[in-house]
Amino acid sequence: MTFDAATITKAALPSPNDPQPFARWVEDRFAKDGKATHIDLPSEMTRAGIDPRLPGYVDTRAGPPRIHRSGFLQSPEPWLKHPQTRFQSAGLIAGPDGRDHPLRPANPQGVVYEKFFVDAGINVSFRSVDTERDLDTFHRWQNDPRVAYFWEEDRSRGELRGFLEDRLSDPHNFSVIGEYDGVPVGYFEIYWAREDRLGAYYEAGPWDRGWHGLIGEVSALGRAKTSAWIRALTHYIFLDCPMTDLVVGEPRVDNAKLLRYADALAYRKIKEFDFPHKRSALMHCARDEFFGRVAL
Results as ranks from 00 to 15, higher is better:
W151I: 06
E165P: 05
G162F: 01
V183W: 00
S175F: 09
S175W: 05
E165V: 01
R157Q: 07
E159G: 10
A148G: 11
D166H: 15
G178K: 04
S156E: 06
P171L: 05
F174V: 03
D170N: 13
S175M: 12
D154P: 03
G162I: 04
N173F: 05
P171D: 11
V176D: 05
E159D: 13
D181A: 08
G178T: 15
P171T: 02
V183S: 05
S175V: 09
R161K: 15
G162K: 09
F163M: 11
S156H: 11
D154E: 10
L160G: 01
E153H: 06
A148P: 02
V185K: 04
D170Y: 08
E159R: 09
D181Y: 05
V183C: 02
G158I: 10
L168P: 02
G178H: 01
V185S: 00
A148I: 14
R155Q: 11
W151C: 04
R157F: 10
G178A: 14
P184C: 06
V176N: 00
D181P: 13
W151M: 08
V176Q: 01
N173T: 14
E165C: 07
G186F: 04
G158S: 14
E153Y: 02
V183D: 07
W151R: 06
E179I: 00
S175A: 15
F150M: 10
L160N: 02
R157V: 11
L164K: 08
G182D: 06
H172K: 09
V183I: 15
H172I: 13
E179P: 03
Y149R: 13
I177C: 05
G186R: 03
G158Y: 12
S169V: 07
R167A: 06
W151Y: 12
W151S: 13
R167M: 06
L164Y: 04
R157E: 12
L164I: 03
I177Q: 02
F174I: 03
F150S: 03
